[in-house]
């Protein structure tokens, strides 16, 4: 495999507001062509970290680099390489959409008229670009926000809740666009609460809570799990048959990890074991209608990790 360059590198970053530690010693990175989902409950410190990565907040301790440029020491070079949206992208509401984009694009080294046209088309605002922003809907504002973020073809795209206010079609468009950008090599950091969306969108997720790193996971691997031959891992399977009571009895004799739920039989076991069980059931003259392997969703992961911490308090 080719060595993947770290476009955004966050090392031992801590942020304190007064005595309150909001981001606590976080370390992770986003590589070229990678979409990293940044998850955490409200107040976890996502926006705070993103603001530090874009130079809006001073870093209390630790170091953030973008394409190798220190965000505090070489701010101008770093900023040339990132673009983004923080919370709601508030622009100059009296000005036309196009004027807003022009004002910002003039501050980058090489953005020409053509590029602006291209981006406007890309975010789907061609018809409304000469209206002042105050006449835009929430979703349109999100789109113009995205336009200003990608206008200079940044190597790193940071999006704080970009799906906020987008309609389902818009969300899909955004997903496709991000994927396209990632394929072109852009590193993308997205924070969002829409876990199912994140699942579809991201290559990796990073979960934080109360400023602390909880988990960082490669979603490609999570998805792959269960599709291959037995890895010895336990999964949950549910049976729907003509005689569930009987199935429960049979399985109970074989295996202890069985329970009934919603009139279905649930069993926790490994892949090779379930094949043996199936044969057994057929031999017992059971008609099996469906058998489902329940894969772990991101939501499960999220709830497990973050709420458990919440309970522990």
């Amino acid at each position: 495999m080719i060595k993947i360059a770290k476009v955004l590198d966050i090392k031992n970053v801590t942020k304190k507001f007064g005595k309150k530690t909001v981001v606590d010693n976080l370390t992770f990175s986003v590589n070229e062509g990678e979409i990293l989902g940044f998850l955490g409950p409200n107040g976890a410190g996502k926006t705070t970290l993103i603001k530090m990565a874009m130079g809006l907040l001073k870093i209390t301790s630790g170091k953030i680099t973008v394409c190798g440029f220190d965000i505090e020491k070489d701010y101008e070079e770093a900023a040339q390489n990132f673009g983004g949206i923080i919370e709601n992208p508030e622009m100059y509401s009296e000005l036309k959409g196009i004027t807003n984009i022009q004002i910002f694009s003039e501050l980058y080294n090489d953005v020409d008229k053509q590029r602006i046209e291209e981006v406007v088309k890309l975010v789907g605002l061609k018809d409304r670009i000469t209206d002042p922003i105050k006449k835009y809907s929430l979703g349109m504002r999100q789109r113009i926000g995205l336009a200003q973020a990608i206008i200079h073809k940044p190597k790193l795209l940071i999006l704080d809740e970009p799906t906020n206010g987008l309609d389902p079609a818009g969300i899909k468009e955004l997903r496709d666009m991000l994927r396209k950008l990632a394929n072109q090599g852009t590193a993308i950091l997205v924070s969002s609460h829409l876990l199912s969306e994140m699942e579809l969108m991201c290559d990796k997720v990073c979960i934080i809570d109360k400023g602390k790193m909880i988990d960082i996971r490669d979603l490609k691997e999570v998805r792959k799990e269960g599709k291959t031959t037995d890895s010895g891992q336990t999964f949950e399977y549910s049976y729907d048959t003509n005689d569930n009571e009987k199935v429960f009895k049979i399985l109970k004799e074989k295996n202890k990890n069985v329970f009934m739920e919603n009139n279905e039989v649930h069993v926790q076991t490994t892949k090779s074991e379930i094949a043996i069980l199936n044969r057994e059931l057929i031999n017992n003259n059971i008609d099996i209608y469906t058998i489902t392997q329940k894969s772990k969703t991101l939501e499960d992961l999220f709830m497990e990790t973050t709420t458990s911490l919440g309970k522990g308090e």
């Binding site: 130079g55 809006l56 900023a79 990132f82 673009g83 919370e87 910002f104 501050l107 980058y108």
Partner: peptide, 14 residues
């Protein structure tokens, strides 16, 4: 007050 400062300060200008 409008929040546009964030949009302005993430540009490559000191």
């Amino acid at each position: 007050s409008t929040g546009s400062i964030r949009m302005l300060l993430i540009r490559p200008v000191k």
